[in-house]
Simulated assay, not measured.
Amino acid sequence: MATRLQAPRLLARAFSPIEHTYTARDTRLYALGVGFGADPLDAGQLNYVYGGADDETLLAVPTMANVLAYPGFWAREPDTGIDWQRVVHTEQEIVLHAPIPPWGRVIGTTRVRALWDKGPGKGALMLQQREVHDAATRQPLATVRQLTLLRGDGGFGPGASEGAPPAQHHLPERAPDAACDLATIPQAALIYRLSGDLNPLHADPAVAHAAGFDRPLLHGMATMGIAAHAVLRAVLAYDATRFAGMRVRFTAPVVPGDTLRTELWIDGKTVSLRTTALERGVVVLNNARVDLR
């Protein structure tokens, strides 16, 4: 069946700005959802989940940018022409223009930045971008980019974007300089979904079984947050001010309860990384990088 997607229409699609007010409680809940606080005696972790009686030392995990002013799963709206049931999230990137405040009011503006047609039966790639800024000061806080494989929408005809999708980040050809193991808990997905991603695939066993999985999966964005935690712990001594950006490629799902080992290659202000679910021997994030200030 021919795709209903029309590239010029999708590239020009208007998105309403989203205003998002979040509190210190939301910031702590996000941090708990990506594993901070697992060691309640670790002062570095506590600054993300406690922050003192008056929140004077509370910090936001840098990857919290992913959930700020999130537009939701808009691909399922009928005007997009996207075969939304065959969408696969392949890459995620954040660029931080300033540290994320531990509470505040932000505005996010989303657009479809590019579409690349892989051909009939081969799908297409869509790059969407969200700019997040402080609602009061208008200060830019983050740029969030998501690369998605539209498996059912190849061969849409004229209107594809010029150029090529972003090239993959290549890992150094040497042994990693460090590694960090972080355990996930069985209820990790149930906690993370409270930060805004309510897809039942991550909570309802019946939905997971219908999709071909034995049990609900952990959100890919949560896996990204756990890998960021590994960098903060192993490289930055939990100093979020040095975290300038992150890009990851999702290669396999995480099952809540997996232990995640993140291998790290440190080259100046670039930290390359790969994350593996140890018990299953599966690489879940690959060709990833964190940029430092």
Rank of each mutant, 00 (worst) to 15 (best):
P8V: 12
P8F: 14
R9M: 04
R9L: 05
R9K: 09
L10N: 14
A12Q: 13
A12N: 08
R13E: 09
A14L: 07
A14S: 07
I18T: 07
H20C: 01
T21F: 04
Y22W: 08
A24N: 11
A24C: 08
R25H: 09
L29E: 02
F36M: 00
G37D: 00
G37L: 01
G37C: 00
G37A: 03
A38V: 00
A38P: 00
A38Q: 01
L41V: 00
L41M: 03
G44D: 03
L46D: 07
Y50K: 06
Y50C: 05
G52P: 01
G52V: 03
A53C: 01
A53I: 05
D54E: 05
D54G: 02
T57H: 11
A60S: 15
A60K: 14
A60L: 14
M64Q: 11
A65Y: 11
N66I: 11
V67P: 02
P71L: 11
P71C: 13
G72P: 01
F73C: 01
A75N: 11
R76P: 03
R76V: 10
R76A: 13
E77L: 15
E77I: 06
P78Y: 13
D83K: 06
Q85N: 06
R86P: 00
V87R: 11
V88S: 04
V88H: 05
V88I: 10
H89A: 01
T90A: 09
E91F: 15
Q92L: 04
I94D: 09
V95S: 13
L96I: 08
H97K: 15
H97T: 11
H97R: 15
P99K: 05
P99W: 09
P99F: 10
I100D: 07
P101I: 08
G104A: 11
G104Y: 13
G108P: 02
G108M: 09
G108E: 09
T110R: 14
R111L: 08
R111C: 07
R113S: 09
A114E: 14
P120S: 03
P120C: 03
